[in-house]
């Protein structure tokens, strides 16, 4: 399978899934933004209205974190199950197994484009004007994408081995939701050493913070740190692709007999 054919397939599968998904719901494509917004609403009610947050711009702060995190967590969760979910097709044709997680991620990427658009509109309404610093968004989104792909490839492999891993992966995402500074500020911690520790140990926390640095402060993220996360994510992607190639027929057997 050529590179071009592979990516055409990924794109075609993603578009078909989007279309089928939209046809299933009364509100169709509206759910792409409705679902993340409902999440934001729940968090807003709890942390702003009930608990009384001190940040003046909490809504924007929350949206920058939550809307990008949902992209990450939903993509990894769904892509991890994608090979097992496609066992019908996998029992019929010998295709690269990475097609399935990649198509799922591509589907999420298309949805996320509209979510980003919504986020930009809210930022603009709230007085955060578009600045040249927003160009840093490109490398941040790219690194975030690589993190999603790398984790999804390994996740998909593990879920094929034992479906139990899908439980662990969704639990891991909830764990990350609480530890990555989605609704609290990593930079607002009392101990600066703790801030540093969270950012170094948790690349998701670093990426969420980088989004806020770019979008809310108009500042560049820590570039050396971003490059290190990018290198780690790229290595994970390469290892994941290799792993799925090596174990392609083994995974087919696992998926079929699961």
């Amino acid at each position: 399978m050529t590179f071009r054919h592979y990516f055409t397939l990924v794109d075609t599968m993603a578009r078909m899934a989007l279309k089928a998904d939209a046809a299933r719901f009364f509100f169709g494509y509206l759910w792409w933004v409705l679902e993340p917004l409902l999440y934001v609403a729940v968090f807003y009610v709890v942390f702003e209205v009930v608990l009384g947050n001190k940040r003046p711009d909490f809504l924007v702060f929350l949206m920058c974190g939550k809307l990008t995190f949902i992209w990450f967590s939903k993509s990894v969760n769904q892509a991890s199950r994608s090979i097992v979910a496609s066992k019908g097709l996998i029992g019929k044709v010998d295709v690269p197994k990475s097609l399935f997680p990649l198509a799922t991620i591509q589907e999420g990427l298309y949805k996320q484009a509209s979510v980003f658009l919504l986020l930009f509109i809210v930022l603009w309404f709230k007085g955060y004007g578009v600045s040249p610093g927003w160009a840093w968004l490109i490398p941040v989104v790219l690194v975030n994408y690589l993190m999603i792909v790398g984790l999804s490839l390994f996740g998909a492999f593990l879920v094929c081995l034992a479906f139990d891993f899908s439980m662990l992966i969704s639990l891991g995402m909830i764990f990350l939701l609480f530890t990555s500074g989605i609704f609290w500020d990593v930079r607002g911690l009392a101990d600066p050493a703790m801030t540093e520790a969270v950012l170094v140990l948790n690349p998701v926390a670093f990426i969420i913070d980088a989004y806020r640095q770019v979008l809310m402060e108009g500042a560049a993220p820590d570039l050396a740190h971003l490059a290190a996360v990018a290198a780690g994510a790229a290595a994970l992607v390469a290892a994941g692709v290799l792993l799925l190639r090596r174990t392609s027929r083994f995974l087919a057997l696992k998926a079929i007999t699961a």
């Binding site: 054919h5 055409t8 075609t12 899934a17 279309k19 089928a20 019908g88 029992g91 019929k92 295709v95």
Partner: peptide, 25 residues
């Protein structure tokens, strides 16, 4: 191409999309 009963289709996709996908795969 392997033709089996039941399996091998994405049930939420239309017949047209499934046929297109099968041919491309």
């Amino acid at each position: 191409s392997l033709l089996t009963l039941g399996l091998g289709f994405q049930p939420q996709l239309s017949g047209r999309d499934n046929a297109l996908l099968s041919a491309m795969l």
